[in-house]
């Protein structure tokens, strides 16, 4: 018993008090800022270098739904591209993940596109079923971490559950491997209506590094309405949590 008390004292208080404003280390790769005076030539260089085709070769905009946050474009063009540690990058609309040159404002979460029943029904309790479909296990581990002693997403009534029948929606990770496509569809169908779909991580949003793989099958995602996009490689627990709080309109 004494040993446990001693361990508890060392353990101290671990939970993140303010999930909205918790600082993360300076080097964390979050929202990028592209200089407004990036030239056509420079855009050409970084867009051809980007391993996941996230940089538009005309406008120079970075699509966070495709970006794998490797930061190679910044290393190549330090004076024009900079990844900030702003982790609040989850959005309700796919197009909001595209960041144009000259933009240095937080990403906009458009609450107007969130279905009314989501906020009405799930605001105080949202139970999620996670489906890993070709994920590399880093996003899965970060989703687990979102519920751990540090981030404690459970404080807002949001939890992962063990059956789709108990769930209000699914969180998909991975580029959706063809071998997992059927299981994903069945899991979604087993969730009672109304239900949400959340994509966690760049792999899930666009296929990421596997977008061109012949072994993936993204029809499920193309055919369904997605309620929340959580970019990242993997999606940081704070990115996921802030996205959920925005989705449910929890301050």
């Amino acid at each position: 018993m004494y040993k446990e008390i001693k361990i508890l004292r060392q353990h101290g208080i671990q939970y993140v008090k303010d999930l909205r404003r918790q600082p993360v280390s300076e080097l964390f790769r979050g929202r990028p800022v592209i200089s407004a005076d990036i030239t056509g030539k420079e855009i050409e260089i970084v867009s051809s270098l980007c391993p996941s085709g996230a940089i538009d070769d005309k406008s120079g905009a970075i699509d966070l739904g495709r970006c794998v946050f490797c930061r190679e474009c910044e290393f190549c063009l330090r004076e024009k591209i900079r990844f900030t540690n702003d982790y609040r990058i989850a959005c309700s609309r796919r197009e909001d993940l595209v960041i144009s040159p000259g933009v240095d404002t937080p990403l906009r979460f458009d609450g107007n596109v969130v279905r009314e029943e989501i906020r009405k029904i799930f605001r105080r309790s949202l139970k999620l079923r996670q489906v890993s479909a070709g994920g590399d296990n880093s996003c899965e581990m970060e989703l687990n971490a979102a519920g751990n002693v540090n981030f404690d997403l459970g404080r807002h009534g949001v939890e992962f559950v063990a059956s789709p029948r108990h769930a209000d929606g699914i969180v998909i990770t991975g580029p959706v491997s063809a071998n997992m496509a059927e299981a994903l569809r069945l899991t979604y169908e087993a969730v009672p209506d109304p239900k949400v779909i959340i994509l966690a991580g760049t792999d899930a949003i666009s296929g990421g590094m596997y977008a061109a793989s012949p072994a993936i099958d993204r029809r499920f995602i193309e055919e369904h309405h997605v309620d929340l996009y959580v970019p990242g490689n993997p999606a940081h627990p704070l990115t996921f949590i802030n996205g959920i709080l925005d989705l449910l309109s929890i301050a």
Partner: peptide, 27 residues
């Protein structure tokens, strides 16, 4: 269930950056 053809993509890629980033994202 997790098969994404990582080896095939690595065999076919001629881009050194892509291959590195791919290896960050297999496991």
């Amino acid at each position: 269930y997790q098969h994404r053809a990582a080896e095939k993509l690595l065999s076919e890629s001629r881009n050194g950056i892509s291959r590195c980033v791919m290896c960050d994202n297999i496991v």
